[in-house]
């Protein structure tokens, strides 16, 4: 696992059934692009988060494929429809095989 990786997500705590809500996500990650050289002139290999996904109650909201041009500390904002109460599961897949996940619940009432 890359060091110091910390996910943050922002999801409203409540919504009405069928509401479209805004979700924001941010994760601390260097996103080494593979384009840089170290002090000896050798290429620093790419090491990025390559996939981000958000699911709600087991169904997909959005899946993003990332490349080296996504900035350090990747940020995404998108919208989701919430038909019912449940859990949003956020998943980031790192090139090094690590998987970071976090969950946020929303109450529809």
């Amino acid at each position: 696992m890359a060091s110091g990786v910390k996910p943050r997500v922002k999801v409203p705590k409540t919504a009405a059934a069928g509401d479209v809500i805004i979700i924001k996500t941010l994760i601390s990650h260097k996103m080494e692009s593979g384009q840089r050289k170290d002090s000896d002139g050798n290429n620093i290999p790419q090491s990025i988060i390559n996939t981000f996904s958000c699911d709600f109650n087991g169904q997909n909201v959005i899946t993003v494929e990332l490349h080296g041009a996504i900035s350090t500390n990747p940020y995404f904002q998108f919208k989701a429809t919430v038909p019912e109460s449940g859990d949003f599961v956020f998943t980031w897949n790192d090139d090094d095989g690590s998987v970071y996940t976090t969950t946020k619940s929303i109450v529809v009432g």
Partner: peptide, 9 residues
């Protein structure tokens, strides 16, 4: 970006 079933937009 790939949009799934619960995508709001």
């Amino acid at each position: 970006f790939n949009f799934g079933q619960f995508s709001g937009s």
